[in-house]
Simulated assay, not measured.
Amino acid sequence: MIPSPTTPRAFSCACGRPVFFRNSQCLACGRPLGYDAARGLLIALEPAPGRSGKGGWRQAGVPPRRARRYVRCANLDTAAACNWLLEPDEAQAGKTLCRCCRLTRTVPDLTQPNADVWWNRIEQAKRRLVSSLIGLELPVRPKTEDERGIAFDLLLAPPEGPGVITGHADGVITLDASEADDARREERRGSLGEPYRTLLGHLRHETGHYYWQLLVEPSHWIESCRVLFGDERQDYGEALQRHYASGPPADWGLHFVSAYASAHPWEDWAETWAHYLHLADTLDTARSFGLDGERVELSYERFGADTVADAGDADAAGFLQLINSWMELTGVLNELSRSMGVADFYPFVLSRPAVRKLHLVHRIIHDKTSR
């Protein structure tokens, strides 16, 4: 039996036709669609007139007395093209943006060429990220409403500079919005010798730094992280300078999920966090459509209980099923990519030390006591 996805990705309109996470309208029947983040569902909508005359929306096909009332995000009609819904309490509090759009503190300078297109692409990636974080029951609160929350500044360098540096600082994630330009991003990927570079990958990586501060730094997990990832108190600036000057160690693949992860323990954590979100969301998507690595006709040497035996995790079997399903699924997806003549779907090889780090990320994400 295929496990149920944590964050579902397969949906149907009220007319019975399939619709997808990013859709705002059913192409078959024309019904408007909206994403209910609290329930992890994309639903068909119908008008729900209110006593005040302001109207609203409710789920199509549900008896009016049982249907909750929604407001569509105000960014539906902007370049962001958001298809998320506001909950009744959010609308009653005077909010006009959904919980995902409220995380964006600064939008790109829309007077610059292509800025509206790039903003749209970034918000598409951010909505997928945030829906996964909500599905994993991680705290996702706007910094404007909670000082321990998160904010995204999507910036474009002015024509005469200086450039924008993507990074994280105390809950604020800055993203160079020009990363949404496919040609520029591919050029940077090639110049840096990276096998993989995407908007979603950037966002997942930078949220890793945020959740380190929120879930690891003030918790009992800090010592466990120092054992596996190293002591993060070593000089960060010097470590990055050394990495860019000399490159990763020759044997980085035996210890890290990526070459950049070898630069500093913080980057090792953030890269591992991003890879965990890659596998969690991809497996959720596959399972939503009836696919799972356990059913793939491909024989791999599976990671056994000895890989994480010293972790003290009573539920290690659940993680091992997850990682082994991932390895088998990506093996097939890589072959499918090669059949199309494109780059591998997952161009990485996971070593046992890297899997142990992924296991620790898994445990911290599912530890409710560290929230």
Rank of each mutant, 00 (worst) to 15 (best):
L129I: 00
L175W: 12
P158F: 14
E179W: 08
R204T: 06
L192I: 05
D176V: 00
P142S: 07
T166S: 15
R197C: 02
Y210L: 06
H209E: 04
L138I: 01
L154A: 02
H202Q: 10
E145V: 07
G193D: 03
D146Y: 10
G193W: 05
R148F: 08
D182M: 12
H202M: 13
R148T: 10
E194S: 07
I150K: 08
R148P: 04
D170S: 13
L200W: 12
E160F: 14
R148E: 13
G171Y: 11
E160M: 11
P142V: 03
E206W: 09
V172N: 06
D170T: 08
R197Q: 04
H209N: 09
E137F: 01
T144V: 04
R185E: 10
L136N: 06
E179A: 15
T174M: 08
D170C: 08
P195R: 07
S178M: 12
H205W: 07
T166Q: 05
D176A: 10
T166P: 01
R189V: 03
D146F: 13
L200F: 10
V172A: 05
E179S: 13
L129F: 00
V164Q: 04
D181G: 10
R197F: 03
G201D: 02
L138W: 04
A151C: 10
L136T: 03
E137W: 00
I150S: 06
R189G: 02
V140A: 09
P159R: 08
L136S: 01
T144F: 07
L199P: 06
A183K: 08
D146P: 08
L203K: 11
I173R: 09
E179Y: 15
Y196Q: 03
V140G: 01
T144E: 11
V130I: 14
Y211M: 03
D170P: 02
G201M: 02
L129C: 09
Y210N: 05
E179R: 13
A180P: 08
P139N: 08
R141D: 03
